[in-house]
Design a protein around this nucleic acid. Sequence first.
DNA 1: ACGTTGAGATTGCCG
DNA 2: CGGCAATGTCAACGT
Lengths: 219, 219
Amino acid sequence: MRLVVAECTVDYRGRLEAHLPRAVRLIMVKADGCVAIHADGGAYKPLNWMNAPNSLVEEPGRWVVTNPKGEELVITLHRVVSDTTHHLGPDPGLQKDGVEAQLRDLLAGRPELIEPGLTLIRREYPTDLGPVDLLLADPGGGTVAVEVKRRGEIDGVEQLARYVERLELDPRLAPVRGILCAERISPQAKVLAAARGLGTTEIDYARLRNAGSSEPTLF
Amino acid sequence: MRLVVAECTVDYRGRLEAHLPRAVRLIMVKADGCVAIHADGGAYKPLNWMNAPNSLVEEPGRWVVTNPKGEELVITLHRVVSDTTHHLGPDPGLQKDGVEAQLRDLLAGRPELIEPGLTLIRREYPTDLGPVDLLLADPGGGTVAVEVKRRGEIDGVEQLARYVERLELDPRLAPVRGILCAERISPQAKVLAAARGLGTTEIDYARLRNAGSSEPTLF
DNA sequence: ACGTTGAGATTGCCG
DNA sequence: CGGCAATGTCAACGT
């Protein structure tokens, strides 16, 4: 990884056009060839960048980065403060925990938190349009399809509506209700869900995680 | 901006949990206090990070970053290869050209380019599902809702369909037609739009920009 | 402060 | 390679 601190101006032409006036910035060039230009603020996102694969041509005081899609990043170096290179080697990569799949599995073990009386038929129930996160039996008869999200947005409502429409065609399952489960559900998503005849339930995932799926509730 | 190259392990606990095994990486600390941990590849996104505002406590061989939301990033430093600090100063910021808002405003001044005879009612017309980019009066009666995109894809068609469906409920606007405007519209989006009864119009934004909104057309 | 939308989104998955 | 969906999405803007 090469790290250059320099006073520079930058021009990008590609999906849009962008220009950076003259200032001191960090230019990061990674081993895969990608280039990122960072200011001393503004979270982790660089001001400008060019992802791999690309081609970097270095002239005195001017770097030109181009990629096969015809995008171009031109860095004009007015004054170089520092220019260092380090060999980092390969990275073992990030291990994640706590994404949608885990939340779905926790809810599968506590379906009564979605609505009292519901019992699990199976998770990832397959349909022609893709798998439904949870399929539950309604004690009043019929079936309940559940779409699990961290955040409930309009897209999730549309997805659930398609599943319910599809499952209704199966006489063994009909009638089918749909419920969108998420930690937070946006007002627009609630409006659209109501208009589509779908239910929405907000779930406290933090409490769900702590309680676990094997322990019965004490209250 | 402080740049530390070090062999480290990293643990994050917050919206999810994540762990980075021992390896050599770049740790970037910006003036606003945000911390980012980069490998030597993988585009510009860091493996792990903590945005400002936060608090960094530095012990020998161990950095602990916490923020007011209760998230925590722990960096264990096994071996420091390099540790440098540079003062970059404030950045004048990025100048962009060619984004959706600009295209929308240009079209608002030249609605006849969407379809002859159309006149502007207002831009960003609010609905329960979000704002419609442009609402136009149809000389033949009724209203036209326009969704403006740089690239017309299936998502834009779905979005427009929801708006039209919603606007139809308002007797002062009905009947409502929908038109998707973009520089390029994908074949799939055209098919879906036709199936939904929506129009599509491809716009030459470069010419629109050069012509400006105040100049009448000469031909 | 909160919510919604756009982004040069990026990134991974699967067909 | 292209579509689809998730992301600790981020960042801008309006209420």
